[in-house]
Structure formats: C-alpha cells, structure tokens
Computed example of a mutant assay.
Amino acid sequence: MTTQQTPGRRDPRLDRSRSAILSAAVELLAEGGVRQVTIEAVTARSGVARSTLYRHFPNSTELLAAAFQELIPPLRPPGSGSPRQRLLRLVLAQAEQIERAPALAALVWMATIGLSGPPGPDDGERSRLTALREHVVDTYRRPFDAVLADCLPGGADADFAASRLVGPLLFNALITRRPSDEPFCARLVDDFLATQAS
C-alpha cells in the first residue's frame, strides 16, 4: 500500500526525521564541541539514515550551523535609537545568550574570529571550519557590525571592537561567574564608547 500525499501538505515523517537529526547534532555539539558533530555520529545517535540526513542538510557544515542556531539563536538587530542604545540592547541580548549557554557562546565567538579547533586541521576540516566561520559571521556578528559602523572611526578594527564588548561577558560567564546584568553591560558600553571618542 502506498501513502498518498495531499497536495500542499508536508509529510510529517520529514519533520520527525529532521527533528531527530537536529536533536542528535545539538546533543553532540553540547557534549563534545564541533568535532563531535559528524555525519556518522549524528546518524548513529538519531537512528536516521544517511540519505535522509542529506535530504535535510546537504553537508555537515549546514548541519552544524543548524545545531548552533538551535542552541544559540541568532541575535536580532537592535532596532532604532542612538548608537549607545542600540549597542547596549545588543550587548544585553548577547549577555543573556551567554548566560544560557556559556561554553557554546564562547565556541560561537571563537569560530567568528577564526579560533575554532586545534591548530593544523586537515584540508577537509579547514574548509568545514571556514564555512562554519562564514555562517557564524553572517548570523551572529552582523548585528554587531551594523551598530559598530556607527560607533567606530573609519579604518577601526571591528573584530577587536566586538571582542572588547563580548570578551568581558564570556569572562564573567566562564571564569568569574559574575552576572553580566544591565549595570555591568551599560558600564561596558559606556567605557567602550568613551575610548572611541578619545
């Protein structure tokens, strides 16, 4: 007996298989980092066939990017307001994400600035990390880049500026266990803007 698909309706098996694949990838990412999220590991954990996985995710980089987005949703653009207001909203949103998943947020930012994985990966791993870095930059860094463009003098290093804002949030979450609350974030933004003005 064949199953007939009603036009315009999605097969629920596709949703179930995608959910199983993504859950397995998220678990592997949380447990062991980027290197653990392989096609073999995900298919073994999810119980979904490799061919089905490739229907949802054409390659391991897209699978890994989807797992990152599941764990740490992308930051929303901060909307309107002064550069300070926009930057503060963005830093507060980043602090909240880091609070929820500090190690993964650190991993995302390391991928953004090109520090993922130990030195000397093979060519396949290097291209995978490069593709992931490009995805992370597009997804997680663009909101910062847009706001920093209004705060930085021409020719300033946006990577360094972003790390000066996000670095203390990661340090609080991973090392000091101090909260990155609104007063802390406001001070961080004000100190940052004061150095840009001088």
Rank of each mutant, 00 (worst) to 15 (best):
T2S: 14
P118W: 02
G124A: 11
Q4F: 05
V147W: 01
R86L: 02
D122N: 15
A41L: 07
L170A: 01
L107Q: 03
G47Y: 10
T6G: 05
S163R: 12
R89Y: 03
T176F: 01
R133V: 07
Q94M: 11
L174H: 06
A162D: 07
E27N: 13
R16W: 13
L170I: 06
A67T: 02
V34L: 09
L14C: 08
R141N: 08
D181R: 13
L29V: 00
F192V: 09
V189A: 05
N59V: 10
V37P: 03
E27Q: 14
I21K: 00
L92F: 03
L71Q: 14
Q94N: 06
I39H: 08
P118E: 00
R35N: 12
C185N: 01
S198G: 15
Q85V: 15
P58W: 03
T43M: 10
F184M: 07
L107H: 03
G155M: 02
E96M: 07
R187Y: 07
A161N: 11
G120Y: 10
L75P: 08
A65D: 09
A162G: 09
P121E: 00
C185E: 02
G120T: 14
F184N: 07
F192K: 03
I21G: 03
R35P: 06
T176N: 06
G167E: 00
D11S: 10
A149G: 08
G81M: 02
P7M: 04
T38L: 01
T3C: 09
Q85P: 13
L92C: 11
P102M: 12
S163N: 12
G81C: 02
E40P: 06
D191Q: 12
E134P: 04
E134Y: 07
P179N: 08
G32H: 04
G114Q: 00
A93S: 11
R100Q: 13
T195M: 10
R45L: 14
L148P: 13
R84Y: 10
L148D: 08
W109F: 15
F144T: 15
R76D: 12
L148H: 04
V136D: 07
A197K: 05
S127E: 15
E182M: 13
F171T: 12
G81N: 02
A49E: 13
S17E: 13
T38R: 05
V37F: 00
P7R: 12
G32D: 14
C185A: 06
S17P: 04
A101N: 15
V147I: 05
H135C: 09
L193G: 06
V48I: 07
R18T: 14
L193S: 06
S60M: 10
L28K: 10
D122E: 12
Y140R: 01
D191S: 14
R50G: 11
D159H: 03
I21S: 04
L193W: 08
L174D: 01
P119C: 02
L29H: 03
L92W: 03
S46M: 12
D123Y: 09
T130C: 08
G124K: 09
I98K: 07
S19V: 06
C151M: 09
T130M: 13
H135R: 05
R100V: 10
S198Y: 07
